[in-house]
């Protein structure tokens, strides 16, 4: 099957193939990239899934549009997409300005049957709530560095700032998160560790 044939191709190569009219490349690129940027967008948007889906579709549309002019080797496709998503989310956040932390789902009460899984889910939800309370740029930098696993130079490119500025933003962001989450140490399972 054609999808298998392209399995080892880089994002860069797939985008060029798409730009040249290849019908399969788009599907593979979407499967690879859409989940990542959807997750990233959802984190930046305070967990708003519907809005994150809108942003994902818009970002991918921009990728399809730029495909014929894409210059291989200049930037990673994922880096380019993270940048577009950051900008789209920042625009949307500016429009609503205040992030309603109450709108984020509260962790459900745990049941004895699946405590571990619940703890994981609760931690993820608590982190999401804490992330939402961070200033925008700290939130973007911390999410890219510690959740998406991007390197500092890539983050610098995505955010259009220096590597030193990235280090400063992530350090301040992490510190703020560590403080915000300290109060939930016991209820999130650390009492049992």
């Amino acid at each position: 099957m054609a999808l298998d044939a392209y399995a080892d191709a880089s994002d860069d190569a797939l985008l060029v193939l798409y730009g040249n009219g290849d019908p399969v490349a788009a599907e593979l690129l979407t499967r690879r990239l859409a989940p990542r940027i959807l997750g990233f967008a959802a984190r930046l948007l305070g967990g708003d899934r519907a809005e994150a889906e809108d942003v994902t579709q818009e970002a991918m549309l921009r990728l399809w549009k730029i495909a014929p002019d894409w210059r291989t080797g200049e930037a990673k496709v994922s880096t380019w997409l993270f940048r577009v998503v950051s900008n789209l989310c920042t625009d949307r956040l500016r429009k609503r300005r205040t992030v309603d932390i109450d709108a984020i789902e509260e962790p459900e009460d745990d049941t004895p049957a699946a405590v571990d899984r619940m703890i994981q889910a609760d931690r993820a939800a608590a982190l999401q709530a804490a992330l939402s309370s961070l200033p925008e740029r700290q939130r973007i930098a911390v999410t890219l560095r510690h959740i998406e696993g991007e390197t500092n130079p890539d983050i610098a490119q995505i955010m259009d700032i220096s590597v030193e500025a990235v280090e400063s933003l992530t350090a301040r962001g992490k510190r703020a998160l560590a403080q915000a989450l300290a109060g939930q140490r016991e209820e999130l399972g650390y009492g049992k560790d």
Partner: peptide, 19 residues
């Protein structure tokens, strides 16, 4: 304040919470 190890557990949970 959480230490790095504790905070990493939160990041880890978020990474596993894929969309």
């Amino acid at each position: 304040m959480l230490d790095d190890h504790e905070l990493e557990a939160f990041f880890n949970a978020a990474r596993n919470d894929t969309a």
